[in-house]
Each structure stands twice: as structure tokens, then as C-alpha cells.
């Protein structure tokens, strides 16, 4: 060890870059120039990158590539569902005669498959009533029971003509518009169509207080004014067009 340093010092001194304090001519002890930094082994004049820097850089790069090769796929695996659009099959909920114009009929269907009862959800369906449904022209109105506050299940109270949420007291009118409590936007709806003599329910969509359509948002996310940009469309839900 000691031998190694000695030779390097000698090499540095021989290069003529500096003056050793002990052999320096001026003899001013306090102001003696500092010993030059020893050159690394294999140094040559005019080099831009030492062998040591090349190797440490190479080791760091190799380690980084190896770590990324493991970590990035693993993270992508966990995060994947965020970017994957989920399929939502149309489901028949009954013949058109089942649904009236003036009151809602509850229907049960599977929102998510493979989770048993937990994947089922309830929607309230009625035929479009031209007297009140002036903004949306779907033939059937299917209102989601997911409260727009934090997602508890609302229920339709027919005598009061209101949707009422059991958790935090949200109240909606017959159109699903907020009448009271904490909800930030009207109740979500489902697309509907009639096929083979059956009313079918399709993907969920959200509406703002003017009943303008948006792709499905989670509860608690307002859609009026600038809010629609703070809660953007997610990759996992279908676009609202159509």
C-alpha cells in the first residue's frame, strides 16, 4: 500500500506539475504549495476519461439496466389495469312492457363478473317521458344506484319521487339531479338499447348538472365548469360517444 503511494507521488513530482514542500526552493513552510493530486495508474497526457471512471460508469450503467429489466416489467404488471379499457357487455334486463313512463323499475345485473354477489348492481329503469326528459333522448332512462358523493347505494323512494342515499344523506330528484346533501353531480346513467325484444343495459356514463354526458367518472368528482378538467377521463372506461 505504502509502496504504491510512494511511486505515484514520485511520478507526479517527475511530471513537473508541482513542487514538493520538502524539496521546494522558497522554503516558506506555511505557504508551501500543496502536493499535486496523484495521477491514476495508466494515465497519459491529454486523456479525457480515466480507465477507472470508464469502469465505474460501466458498472453503474450495467446495474441500472439490470435493475430496470426487473423493476419496470413488475411495475407495469401492477399498474397495467389503469391503462386497459375494460369490456362491458350489453345485458338484457327485461321486455319493454316491464318499464313504465312514470315510475322506476329496479333491475339487477352483473357489473363485474367472477366476484359473485359482490359484482352485481342495481339500476332503476323507466321509459323516456317526453314531459320531463327534454335533454337526453335515450328511449329508456337507466339510473345507476351508485351515489355521486362516495359510492354508497341509493334507493328510489317512490312516494317521495326521490333517490335517497343511506350513508351521508344525499337526495336526488326523479331525474337523478342533486336536491340536497353532499353529492357533487347527478346520479350516473347507463346506456340503453332495445334488441330482440329486450331492453339492454350498456356501459355507464356520467352527467353534469346540465345532464351533459361525460365518460364514467368515479363518485365525488364534480363535472361542472373547470372541474371536468381536474378529473379527466380515465383509460379504463369507454369514451362517451354514441
Amino acid at each position: 500500500m505504502a509502496d504504491h503511494t510512494e511511486t505515484e507521488r514520485a511520478a507526479g513530482a517527475a511530471g513537473g506539475d508541482g513542487v514538493s514542500p520538502r524539496t521546494g526552493g522558497n522554503g516558506a513552510g506555511a505557504l508551501a504549495p500543496r502536493l499535486p493530486k496523484p495521477k491514476p495508474p495508466g494515465y497519459f497526457e491529454g486523456e479525457t476519461m480515466t480507465r477507472r471512471a470508464l469502469f465505474s460508469g460501466g458498472v453503474v450503467a450495467a446495474g441500472g439496466i439490470a435493475t430496470a429489466a426487473i423493476l419496470l416489467p413488475a411495475i407495469g404488471f401492477a399498474v397495467g389495469p389503469v391503462f386497459e379499457e375494460e369490456d362491458f357487455p350489453w345485458q338484457s334486463v327485461g321486455p319493454p312492457s316491464k318499464f313504465g313512463e312514470d315510475d322506476y323499475t329496479p333491475v339487477t345485473f352483473s357489473m363485474v363478473t367472477d366476484v359473485g354477489e359482490a359484482g352485481k348492481t342495481l339500476a332503476y329503469v323507466r321509459r323516456r317521458n317526453p314531459a320531463i326528459d327534454t335533454k337526453l333522448m335515450d328511449e329508456y332512462v337507466a339510473i345507476s344506484t351508485r351515489c355521486a358523493h362516495l359510492g354508497c347505494p341509493v334507493r328510489w323512494v317512490s312516494p317521495a319521487q326521490r333517490f335517497v342515499c343511506p350513508c351521508h344523506g344525499g337526495v336526488y330528484d326523479a331525474q337523478g339531479q342533486v336536491e340536497g346533501g353532499p353529492p357533487v353531480r347527478p346520479l350516473d346513467r347507463f346506456k340503453t338499447r332495445v334488441q330482440n325484444g329486450q331492453v339492454q343495459i350498456g356501459p355507464r356514463y356520467s352527467v353534469n348538472s346540465d345532464l351533459k354526458r361525460f365518460s364514467a367518472r368515479d363518485p365525488g368528482e364534480p363535472l361542472d365548469g373547470l372541474w371536468q378538467y381536474l378529473y379527466p377521463k380515465r383509460f379504463s372506461v369507454p369514451p362517451v360517444s354514441g
Binding site: L150, D218, E221, F235
Partner: peptide
């Protein structure tokens, strides 16, 4: 859903927690 009310990133974080748009 409370977590999802964080602006901009909240909805995506909710999708990450649920592994999709619905509790699946």
C-alpha cells in the same frame, strides 16, 4: 372514492387500487 377526489391523479390512483374502473 375519497382517494379518487384528489385532482388529476386521484382517478388513476383509484383505478390502480381497484385494478380497473369497478371493484372487481
Amino acid at each position: 372514492n375519497i382517494n379518487g377526489t384528489a385532482p388529476v391523479l386521484g382517478p388513476y390512483l383509484s383505478d390502480f387500487l381497484r385494478a380497473g374502473p369497478e371493484f372487481g
